[in-house]
């Protein structure tokens, strides 16, 4: 195989259909850009889940009388509840927060705000803060075990709050993947079409090649490489787009909630992690599409 020959054929081919080539590169780039966005969303969701899994607790709030009477969970009602919880294999640990502690934390949270002055320790419940060993089954078990028990006011599963965030991130992921899929179909058809046009404009060459005994590789490889080159260029543009998007757009958009630790930031390394995946997808899909097209539609 002569590399210089194939290279020359590929560039002639790309130049000859330059408008088609550009359309193909752009469509591929948009499609892969969306795939990349989706992958970054998935990664962010994973990170966020990790971030919260060690922080999220189920709070069992105690009734006002128990809260007021018991400052260290030493009395029977609170201790009974605590023991029940601690005996569950789904529970990792239980921490008691007294009214006074809750008040102090509240002051800290709302420091400098009018709300801080309104609240008195008595208006806050003491809570049993439960860390789960099993994130999936744990909260339901705790809710079931505590509901209706003497001394329990209500149960707050922090995961319900966090779930909204996950829903949002999951939505972002689903929408981008759906758009990516639509774009991918367009990209596939364009690649297939371009390969056919390319083969048609070069039918004389290919005819001569066949006649003088060129192997299938020689006749088909230029078309395949043409498709792969556009796929890879599209992937590179997509990666550049993701980088630009990160620095110009996402970083500013998320800066508030990222610095508060609500959502983990999208790191440069994440984009670097996504890029080779996009290049592989771009090259692979283009190669397969090109090959199938040559096999099915082009007689070489």
């Amino acid at each position: 195989m002569r590399a210089d020959f194939v290279t020359r054929e590929v560039f002639t081919g790309l130049r000859r259909n330059v408008t088609m080539t550009i359309a193909m590169v752009l469509t591929t780039a948009i499609s892969l850009g969306l795939v990349g966005t989706g992958l970054l969303a998935v990664r962010t969701i994973d990170r966020t889940e990790q971030l919260y899994s060690d922080r999220v607790e189920v709070q069992v709030a105690l009734t006002a009388d128990v809260s007021a009477a018991d400052t260290d969970c030493s009395q029977p009602v609170c201790q009974g509840l605590r023991t029940t919880l601690e005996n569950s294999p789904l529970v990792d640990s239980v921490r008691f927060e007294s009214q006074q502690q809750a008040y102090e934390r509240y002051l800290e949270l709302f420091e400098g705000q009018a709300l801080a002055d309104v609240v008195r320790p008595q208006s806050l419940p003491a809570t049993l803060r439960v860390r789960l060993a099993d994130q999936e089954a744990g909260s339901a078990a705790v809710v079931q075990a505590m509901t209706g028990q003497v001394g329990v006011r209500n149960i707050i599963d922090q995961r319900d709050v966090v779930a909204k965030l996950f829903d949002f991130l999951g939505g972002v992921r689903n929408v981008t993947f759906a758009l990516a899929l639509v774009q991918a179909v367009a990209a596939l058809l364009l690649i297939s079409n371009t390969v056919q046009v390319s083969a048609y404009t070069r039918r004389t060459e290919v005819g001569v090649m066949r006649l003088v005994g060129a192997t299938r590789w020689y006749t088909q490889l230029p078309f395949l490489i043409e498709a792969v080159v556009t796929g890879v260029v599209g992937a590179l543009i997509a990666s550049a787009g993701l980088l630009a998007g990160k620095f110009l757009f996402i970083d500013q958009l998320l800066s508030g909630i990222v610095s508060n630790g609500v959502v983990p930031p999208i790191e440069l390394s994440d984009v670097v992690w996504v890029s080779p995946i996009l290049v592989m997808i771009g090259a692979g899909v283009a190669a397969v599409t090109g090959y199938v097209t040559l096999r099915l539609y082009v007689r070489l």
Partner: peptide
Amino acid sequence: AFALEVIGKSS
């Protein structure tokens, strides 16, 4: 030359 290139003859 094309006829030789495509069957892999050296330059």
